[in-house]
Amino acid sequence: MQRVAAEPIEVLRTRTSQKWRTYADDVLPLPVAEMDFPLAPPIAAALHAAVDRSDTGYASSSRPVAEAFQGFAATRLGWDVDPARVTCTADVSLGIVEVLRRVTEPGDGVVITPPIYPPFFDLVAEAGCAVVEVPMAGGIDEGWQLDLPGIEAALAGGARAMVLCNPHNPIGWVPDPESLRALAEIAAGAGATVVSDEVHGPLSQPESRYTPFLTVSDAAREHGFAITSASKSFNIPGLKSALIATASERSDRVRAALPYEVEWRLGQFGAIASIAAFREGGPWLDGVLASLDDNRRLLADLLEDELPGVGYRMPQASYLAWLDLSALDWGDDPAAYALEHAKVALANGPGFGASVGRGHARLNFACTPEVLAEAVTRLADAR
């Protein structure tokens, strides 16, 4: 497998994205979910060609992106997607909010599963709903699972929807098909909706291939929405393109009722880049996955050698590591200590859920092995 190498730090510091403009130059920035790999050549070529022809108007429609995704989903994900059942929009977060607004009433409860991507808390509120936390069962030592009885109780208690993270950010866990089928049955029994964020799906490692929620059962198709994007897998989040997919007449009616502005928010460059990614980006993605596999294993070795008290379970997907740093006695928010004393920026653990995030932090290992090694050394020296 030909690996894709991350770019060196001196090149990365010329970037102007959030990851490289938030911190001083003496800080290693490892909190934001951006990868340090160079852009996939087919995407770069497509964008350059668009600039050359001044193709910077509005995106034409969802259909070209949906058709490109249909082929990608079929060959790489085992997912039969009907392009007629896809509406594109700017990003996954916007898609989650817009769907929630149409399957809930103001004040309804929406289940999320901490530790969870911090914006989920805000997205539920933006949709006019109330957050209902059902923390993940298990943990770093024994592994993770959905707390299905807890979710069932929450839906029976009045929550009307759940936002599923499949694969799960920040723990990198890939739900098995049986768990997803059980979740779908619980939602069906309660007449509730599952909105599945699947943006990290193509970044699952081969031994833990992710299962799209809409493929697992009729109940999932009846009560589910899948929202995904090329943004994480191909490192193009700034280009604004995502897909809202349905697989039943019930969900189709909800998607069809979305305001037309939802689709208008699809970015032209996002559409162009996504089409190139889905059609031609497979070999680049394979190389990135191989490099991420190397790094997740390297991180395990580095922590064992230099920070043996830190808890880490090798993620099955994506490039994010959930670290239990409580043995270091760096307080509830060890990321703040790491930034001040080690000049390493990590994502704030309590932001992923105060009940389970204290003493934890998230680290982005989509970087060079040298940067990863230096980050762990800096953390070890700061003890």
Score class of each variant (00 low, 15 high):
T89A: 06
A125M: 06
I9F: 07
A46G: 13
R250T: 04
V288M: 07
K343F: 02
F269V: 08
D301C: 15
S17H: 05
L379G: 09
V310H: 02
L77C: 13
A271H: 01
I43Y: 01
T368P: 10
R160I: 00
A137N: 11
Q145H: 10
A277W: 05
V92H: 05
F278K: 12
G282S: 14
R160W: 00
R101M: 02
I140D: 11
H360E: 07
P170S: 10
I275N: 02
S248R: 00
G107K: 02
Y312M: 04
A361V: 08
G287N: 04
W264C: 10
R255S: 04
V51S: 13
H223C: 15
E207K: 12
G201K: 12
E340V: 08
P237E: 10
L289W: 07
A68L: 04
Y58Q: 11
D25H: 08
D333Y: 08
S248F: 01
A127M: 07
Y58C: 07
G191E: 01
R101Y: 06
L100D: 08
I171A: 06
A130T: 11
P334G: 13
D55Q: 01
I116V: 10
P315S: 04
G172R: 11
S241R: 11
R85S: 09
K232Q: 06
P350H: 09
I272R: 14
D82N: 13
Y58H: 14
G189V: 00
G143N: 09
P334Y: 05
G158F: 00
A354C: 03
R250I: 12
G357M: 07
P119A: 08
A354M: 03
R362I: 12
L325V: 06
G270R: 04
L164H: 00
H200Q: 06
P283S: 05
H168W: 07
E249N: 11
P115H: 15
T104N: 11
P350Q: 05
D286P: 05
L77R: 11
T22F: 12
E306G: 06
E178V: 09
D176T: 01
Y117L: 12
D293Y: 10
P334M: 13
Q205Y: 08
A271F: 04
V254P: 00
P8D: 13
E178K: 14
T75H: 06
K240M: 10
A73E: 02
A84L: 15
L346R: 10
V216K: 14
G143V: 08
D197E: 07
A220V: 05
V103T: 11
E263F: 04
E306Q: 05
M314T: 13
A190T: 00
I151Y: 01
N166H: 02
F225D: 03
L39C: 07
D301P: 09
P202D: 01
E370L: 15
V32G: 11
G281W: 06
F225T: 13
P212Y: 10
D91K: 15
G95W: 01
